[in-house]
Structures are given as C-alpha cells and as structure tokens.
Design a protein around this nucleic acid. Structure first.
Length: 591
RNA sequence: GGAGCCGUAGUUAAGCUGGUUAUAACGCCGGCCUGUCACGUCGGAGGGCGCGAGUUCAAGUCUCGUCGGCUCCGCCA
C-alpha cells in the first residue's frame, strides 16, 4: 500500500463545479462505482460530502490508467488530475458534480478493501443484523450518514441558542448514586469500596438542581442518560438528553425559552418554521379528547364520552361500564369486515375485550352487531354527540377509563394511518400541561410521582397532596410533537418543607429521605432560588427531524432489542481476576 | 414475564397444497470494450435452506424445541 507521500487533498467530493474547470486537484475517497471500458475507466469516488466522477485514460496518465484496472469497490484512493467539463451531452444532471469530471494523471492506492458484506448503497436494504455487525460500513451509506450530519447541526443549533441566553454547559457525574423511584438503574461496582455500587444517571436531575442552589442560574448539557429498561423502536438504554435548568423563573419562562429553542432548531436544521406560539392543552383535556397524554394533533378525530347516553341501555356491557366512549370516523363505512376484525385484535393489545361498531348506511340504517339493543333515544343521543352522518363508522369502548382511553386513543392513531389523515411533512407541536402530581400504583399500592418527586405542586394544591393525592396538579409540562413526547419538565420544590411534604405523600419516611436525598434536602435549606427546567429526548427529536422510523438510525452505535452490541459483542463476560478485584462472585446460572 | 412477524448463495428475494439436480437479480471472479454514470457484453464460481430433534417412503416446505433480529404489551419518575 502507498502512503500519502506528501499529497494534500484540495477538495471534497461534492464541491467541484463547472467553475473549477482546468483546476489541478488532489482528491481522496472511497470507490463507489467502477465502470471499466478498457480504454477508459470511470469511477465515482465518495466521501461524506458527495460523489465525483474521475476518469482514467491513457491520454491523461498512462501509468495510472494501467493500474486503475485493479481498482475495486470500497478501495481508498488518492488521485491527482485536472477538472474538465464533461463532453457535450455527457453531463449528469442527477449529480451535484455532474457537470465535471476529473481526468487522472496520478493514482495512489491508500487502502484495499475486502468485498463488503453488503453493497454500500442507499438503494440496498440489508438485514439489520448485518448492518449492526458492520456498523462502520452501514455508516458509509449516505442515507444514514446524513442523519448524523443533521444530528451534529442540531446539537450546534441548541448550543448556539442556549449560549446566546447565558446558559452554561456544565458536566455532571456519570458515576453517581442509585436513587429509589423511576427506572431501573445500571449499576457499576466500586473496587475501592467493595460491596458498594455507583449508578449511572437516569438523568442529571439532582445535580442540575444543586447547580441552581450554587447560583449558576442557567445550566444546560447535551448528556447521556441510562435506564435499564426494555427497548423499543424509540427507546435505547443509553440515550441523550438536552438537559436544561433555570433559576428565578416560572413555567411560562421555561416554556417560552424551550419553544424558541425548538423553533430555532427546526429552522436551522430542516428549514421548517414552527408556529410562533405552540398550542397548549391540559392533561385532562388530552385524555378526554384523544385518550392519550401525548395527542397527535395533526388530525382531528376526537373521542366522545357517551356514558350517560347509554346508561340505561339494554346492551348491558354499555349500561354497566364505568366509561363508554365513541370514536367516529367520517366516511369510515368503507372498512371491510376483515379490517374491523383486525382492528378488534389491535385494541385487544391494550386490554380491550372487544370493539363495538356501527356503520351508518345510505338508507339511514344502522348496520351493527349491537344496533338491535339501542333504543331510539340512545340512537338520537349518539347521533347528536358524535355528529354521525351517512357513510360513517363509529367505534365504541366500554370498560375502565384506562382501557377505554388507551384502546380508543391507539385506535385513533391506527385509523389515521389507514385513512391517510396525516399529511407528510407536517409538524404539530403541543404543550400538555396541568398533569396530576401523583399517580396510584396498584402493584405497589402507593402513590408515585407522575413526573418525578422533585416536581412542585400547583399553588394551593399542597394540602391536597395529603387529603386527596389524586387531585393535586403539578407545575409540569410536556412538549409533544406529532404524538411523540419529545420533552418534559417542571418547576421544582425549592424549599425543604415543600420537598419534605412531597416525600411524605410518596410514603418516603424521614429516615429514607435523609438517606437517599439528604444532600438535596440540606441544600434546599441554604437558600435555593425558585427554579425549574426541562429535558428533551435528543434522539427522538432527531428522529422526527430525519423522518427516521427507528432510534437506531440516529445513534451511531446502537444496541439491539436485547441491549447487546452486535459489533463489539458487548456485554461480555469478564475475567475472574476482574471480579475478584471488585469483590464479586457470580451466582450459579439457573437451568 | 408475555404476544406476533422474520431467518434460503456475499446481498435482496422467489420456492403453491411436502416429491427429480433449490430459482432469479445484484454482488464476486475471468475475457472484451474510449463516454459511462446502478455502463454494456461473453463466460464462470458460489448455497443445501439459522441450529437441533421429530413426523414421513420423502422436509427449505409440517410439528416441537432452541438461537438470533424486528414490532408490540408489561416496564420506561
């Protein structure tokens, strides 16, 4: 192989144009396509900026031409030559550099390449196992590489914006303390303190609050967070947050700052202008109209509460249910029996036992397995509340509020897909506000923080925490974009007594609070300013900006669903010596 | 913890109700070619169907198990 031998690259491979004709250039890159005509050899050379056609011929460089026959896919070349306009009619309008080519006088083979396990091309769609095993080759594909270029631009945009507002980027520990509540921690054994473990941060929550106590006033960090939970298409065990905290602010100021940040981000990365004021919706309204706490408001289709209409119905399932809701699909009558059966299976995933439906036929007849149970008064009531018209279909769920809302909320999304209700390239941001502070956990039989235990209740709601925990509202806000939760935050408890009241409501007694969060409680006694913040799921934001279907397409080296890395084969076993140093003995494996 | 889909040359796929020697395209190797651009053209090599049992005269096709990938429920303050 040859080394650079003093050659210096003069241009990237996406930038030469007709303006550069007759320029002597030196290019370096990977071989994308080879078209060997014998007397003339064309090669598309690739780097991350693009492609440039180079030509080998005896007239341009005899030695280079002869050696060029050996060139294969993915070889790394350095070439010297002259930029020339392509002959009349030979330009390639499909290529940014299609007006020119470079006639090669000198060639160096910087590296050879084995035949790659899959073709490095945007058109090919190799199995994900292979893509993950050879991730470094997958990342050569422009389609994937462009996601990371955009990700970089997004991070720069955020830093620029926050820096402009006086935010300080401050790093917080990765080796920290396990805390109760929230997700399962990743643990790291301590060699110097055998039997003790660090936890990787689920988020820098407590540190950023303490930075506010320190008087640093405005903090941000684009930071890795770790949660040892099962993976999803939009969830990895290590992921990145844009983490932000501010002092002397209320929720209006945090939301205003965050909105402007997201707006700048969209403008500077994909040139999209988001609305100047993001709409807002209280949590209760989101559940009422959309069934979910992260409504996709790119399309309408609202759920309607019809519990009272069917309260006395002969259809006992409706009459007895705690909650009955309807979802009308305008012109949905075209759904086939098969499709309805499939939708019935779909809602069962979310705990539904079935799916009642009514089609309103041309002649006004109600075609439905349940129509015969409905009185005229009930029919009139449903027609009015749902706004039923000829050609519609309306679906029902009658069950516990949780099941009704989840099943119909998910069905709503499914139907939007089926009927093409979502226009490509639309972005609908939405603030969801007025969340309940606490949620009852039937498994642990106790109240848990819906957001996190440091979130402040809304003014005047502190007493409710003790008397009617489910009714207390939080000073919390989520930013939802196209039905995906991309950010969330809150105003925090900034006095010891507020925080103590919260711990009490969560059933964390004095001793436990002191043990787990003593440093925070104590800090709050030394003059903590009112403060609050927000954290964005950076990967999810990038997914939306790129139109990626999987979070793996915006993470350079992602994990599989079983949280392994197919490239490095992490996690792996460690030597007995390493275990001994840590004071760890493995238990016998279960059969 | 649970449900579903997938696994066939290097890659992507086809292979119907089980039946000669498992197809194709791309890629790869060799020849020819001075205007190609997913070059063309002629020729060639390459797999026994993720793995293991079972049913059967006969299994890529059926059954069970197992491994791996993906999607989802639970979980994710």
């Amino acid at each position: 192989m040859e080394d650079l031998g003093g050659w210096t690259r003069t241009h990237h491979l996406g930038e030469l144009t007709a303006a550069d004709v007759d320029r002597e250039v030196c290019l370096m890159g990977w071989v994308q396509f080879r078209r060997d005509h014998g007397g003339l050899i064309f090669i598309d050379l690739r780097d991350r900026m693009g492609l440039t056609q180079i030509v080998f011929g005896a007239d341009y460089g005899l030695d280079a031409h002869e050696r060029a026959h050996a060139i294969r896919s993915e070889y790394v070349l350095a070439v010297r030559g002259t930029v020339k306009a392509r002959p009349e009619g030979m330009a390639n309008p499909g290529m940014p550099t299609g007006q020119i080519e470079v006639q090669i006088s000198g060639l160096k083979f910087l590296a050879l390449s084995k035949t790659p396990p899959f073709e490095i091309e945007d058109r090919s769609e190799p199995a994900e196992v292979l893509r993950l095993k050879y991730r470094y080759l997958d990342l050569r594909r422009p389609k994937l590489a462009k996601n990371f270029i955009l990700r970089h631009k997004a991070a720069q945009s955020v830093r620029r914006y926050l820096d402009g507002l006086g935010f300080l980027e401050i790093e917080t520990p990765i080796l920290t303390k396990s805390t109760p509540e929230g997700a399962r921690d990743f643990l790291v054994p301590s060699r110097l303190n055998q039997g003790s473990f660090y936890a990787l941060p689920q988020s820098p929550q407590l540190f950023k609050q303490l930075l506010m106590v320190s008087g640093l006033e405005r903090y941000y960090q684009i930071v890795k967070c770790f949660r040892d939970e099962d993976l999803r298409a939009d969830r990895q065990p290590e992921f990145t947050q844009i983490d932000i905290e501010m002092s002397f602010v209320d929720e209006e100021q945090v939301m205003h700052m965050a909105e402007n940040m997201v707006r700048a981000l969209f403008r500077e990365t994909i040139g999209v202008d988001l609305p100047t004021a993001f709409p807002r919706m209280p949590f209760a309204e989101a559940i009422r109209d959309y069934g979910l706490d992260k409504p996709d408001v790119r399309f309408d289709l609202k759920l309607k509460d019809v519990t009272e209409v069917v309260r006395g119905s002969e259809f006992k399932l409706f009459a007895k249910a705690e909650l009955v809701k309807a979802l009308r699909v305008p012109a949905g009558g075209e759904l086939s029996r098969k499709e309805i059966d499939d939708l019935t299976e779909f809602v069962k995933i979310y705990g539904a036992t079935g799916l009642a439906w009514i089609k309103i036929k041309e002649d006004g007849e109600w075609q439905s397995p349940i129509a015969k149970f409905l009185s005229q008064a009930e029919r009139d009531g449903l027609t009015t509340i749902c706004g039923l018209e000829v050609g519609d279909i309306v679906f029902f769920q009658a069950a516990s509020p949780d099941v009704v809302n989840t099943a119909l909320g998910q069905l709503r999304l499914q139907l939007a897909e089926r009927f093409g209700l979502i226009k490509d390239g639309t972005f609908a941001p939405l603030w969801v506000t007025d969340f309940p502070l606490l949620e009852y956990d039937p498994e642990d039989k106790r109240w848990v923080a819906r957001h996190h235990p440091f979130t402040s209740p809304q003014p005047g709601q502190l007493d409710l925490v003790a008397t009617d925990p489910g009714a207390a509202l939080a000073r919390a806000y989520d930013l939802v974009l196209n039905g995906s939760e991309i950010g969330g935050g809150s105003i925090r408890n900034h006095t010891m007594s507020m925080q103590q009241a919260m711990f009490t409501a969560l059933g964390i007694d004095q001793a436990e609070a002191t043990e787990k969060f003593g440093f925070l409680l104590e800090a709050l006694e030394f003059g903590a300013p009112p403060h609050g913040g927000i954290a964005f799921g950076f990967d999810r934001l990038i997914m939306i900006l790129c139109g990626a279907k999987s979070i793996r397409d915006v993470i350079a080296f992602p994990k599989t669903q079983k949280a392994t890395c197919l490239m490095t084969e992490a996690p792996g076993e460690v030597s007995n010596r390493q275990l001994r140093e840590l004071g760890i003995r493995l238990r016998e494996k279960k059969d």
